[in-house]
Nucleic acid binder design. Structure first.
Lengths: 241, 241
DNA sequence: AACGGTAGGTACGCTACCGTACGTACCAAG
DNA sequence: CTTGGTACGTACGGTAGCGTACCTACCGTT
């Protein structure tokens, strides 16, 4: 629970010099169980989380209680985006989808680092563009693409974030994230399984054939990863205009 | 075309002291015709636009050419969001929906102001949170709400941005923005007209009864305006945490 | 071995919206 | 007055996903 940060979050790993070397002072490794709410619907935050192998969903909670996913954060980014935008109150809930570790930094230290290091601030702000792009792509995808494509996209993105081909996932939770019926997700995943793209086992999905899954997905997966998505680990991208 | 900026954009009008007084040096008033693309799908930008009474759509262009709205900017915000996030390449197209004036600032001057004035930078970055919130809300709305609600939401938001109850709008353009058939929009708007919420005339919509339109809309309209949306004109909100 | 909780398969009638297409009304230009 | 373009009304078969519901299979606990 209190180990020192070594590596794993692409944003932090892209820092250099002092920005990188003294990170341990401010970070605490926290293990997040799946299905745990990181924060309620709205309110102030007191720390910033840099996922290592956990995957966190940003959700919009509707008045009727539906919680639709409007963003996902893994090892390529951080929570909460708004902290890099001079706002300490966020207006979205967040929820751990895939259990794992996050490197947690107190909000006050995050603010100080933003003020003290232009490189740190730059990297965090560039990460915000990814979160924004992602939300916009989800909006367009929800408008235009059928459920099976959306499921394939979600599985591909999650695979990239956890770095494994196999992870726990129930039809029920995916249906909530995508804002559809559980039965509809069951049909979509059955279809993906028939295509040989995935294998399912009671609360667990294994990606059996990435290319088949890509073919079943919409362009949104590639658009997000191409643009930045998980590529902030590439130093040339992180520092380029 | 080259008049001096006086007032009209809520972000700029919230600046004070030197930030406000020397704005005219860097701003040029530009009249945008409707249906004009401000920028192609993706690429570098050379200026930043602060709408006065124009309304601009941020669109995600799909591979098949569909251009779905993933954000809207009017007098409450600015284009391009990414300019405040240390990125001079944006990855979304933008399109003038409702013709009108924008105050245009060269990107280089925008950057210098971001660097020189903490108040200016703060205001711009807080505006980014609104754009992000908006995109997320559209994502959730597309997943959960029916077309008639979405049309009502769009009309209400546009009304707030143009500051008039009447503005040009064709069924065809709204159908593109929402990613649906033109015929579906025709039905939805007919229904809104039957409820007495709007009156239509060949390429023109007039909001006849705001309360009726609110009732026909989903919660997304109020969520966006409540959170910030068009309320950055309120100084207490613009400077509060 | 029995039990209870969770995950998932399946079904049925229903609705919103689709793709396509054609007709009609308005309006500016000639 | 005619013409042509644009905006909108309307229609029809098709389908993706809905709401609801019920049943079965798996699995950890007792």
């Amino acid at each position: 629970m209190h180990a020192t940060y070594l590596a794993g979050n692409h944003l932090l790993d892209n820092l250099s010099g002092n920005d990188r070397s003294d990170l341990g002072e401010d970070l605490e490794i926290v293990e997040l169980p799946s299905r745990q709410w990181l924060a309620p619907y709205s309110g102030p935050r007191h720390h910033v989380d840099f996922p290592i192998d956990a995957v966190i969903s940003i959700v919009a909670t509707m008045r009727n209680g539906d919680a639709v996913e409007v963003g996902t954060v893994g090892c390529e980014g951080f929570m909460e985006t708004d902290a890099a935008l001079e706002s300490d109150t966020v207006r979205r809930g967040s929820f751990c989808q895939i259990s794992g570790k996050v490197a947690r930094m107190p909000l006050l230290r995050f603010r100080e680092r933003m003020d003290d290091s232009a490189a740190f601030a730059r990297l965090m702000r560039r990460s915000v563009t990814a979160t924004l792009f992602n939300a916009q792509q989800i909006a367009a995808c929800n408008a235009k693409h059928v459920l099976e494509q959306q499921c394939a996209r979600w599985l591909l993105m999650t695979r990239d974030r956890v770095g494994r081909d196999s992870f726990p996932l129930t039809h029920d939770s995916l249906s909530t994230l995508l804002g559809v019926r559980r039965a509809s997700v069951s049909l979509a995943l059955q279809s993906l399984q028939t295509r040989g793209a995935i294998v399912q086992h009671r609360g667990h999905v294994t990606i059996a054939n990435v290319e088949a899954l890509r073919a079943a997905s919409c362009e949104c997966y590639e658009d997000c990863t191409d643009a930045f998505g998980l590529s902030l680990l590439d130093p040339t991208l992180a520092t380029a205009g």
